[in-house]
């Protein structure tokens, strides 16, 4: 159910990127796809009733050990680490795509990709 929801969100973004003819709309579709993939990766590591992967005072056993309750309840930290880098990278790629859009608008005076295709022949 939740995975299928992620897939539906991904398909919405893909529809937007494929069908629309406004350049900024295509960028928005790519952003929606990024959100869907990030949420799906986090969902793969979730367990019901889990705790966040951050050790507090209550989870310490001894000096450097964590309690077994923490180990048995912790959600997966690996997808979180991967998604954390992915989010910052998506901001950089968003800036790059927007720079392309602005430059194209200045060159052709429109965001419409079919118009641009017609102008260039």
């Amino acid at each position: 159910m939740a995975y299928a929801w992620c897939f539906l969100l991904f398909m919405t973004g893909l529809y937007c990127a494929v069908v629309k003819k406004n350049m900024v709309k295509i960028v928005l579709g790519i952003i929606i796809m990024e959100y869907a993939v990030n949420i799906f990766l986090i969902m793969l590591g979730y367990r019901i009733g889990g705790v966040a992967p951050i050790v507090g005072k209550g989870e310490l056993a001894g000096i450097d050990k964590v309690t077994s309750a923490f180990v048995n309840n912790c959600v997966d930290p690996l997808p979180q680490a991967l998604v954390l880098t992915s989010i910052v990278i998506s901001l950089g790629s968003l800036a790059l795509m927007i720079a392309l859009c602005i430059r194209t608008y200045e060159r052709y005076g429109t965001f419409d990709i079919t118009e641009i295709r017609r102008l260039r022949g």
Binding site: V88, L91, G92, A95, A99, I102, Y105, E106
Partner: peptide
Amino acid sequence: KVGASLFLIILVLSMFRPA
């Protein structure tokens, strides 16, 4: 590194004036 580079991106985007 991340703070300087993201600030740089937005500064460059705002310096651009269309024709």
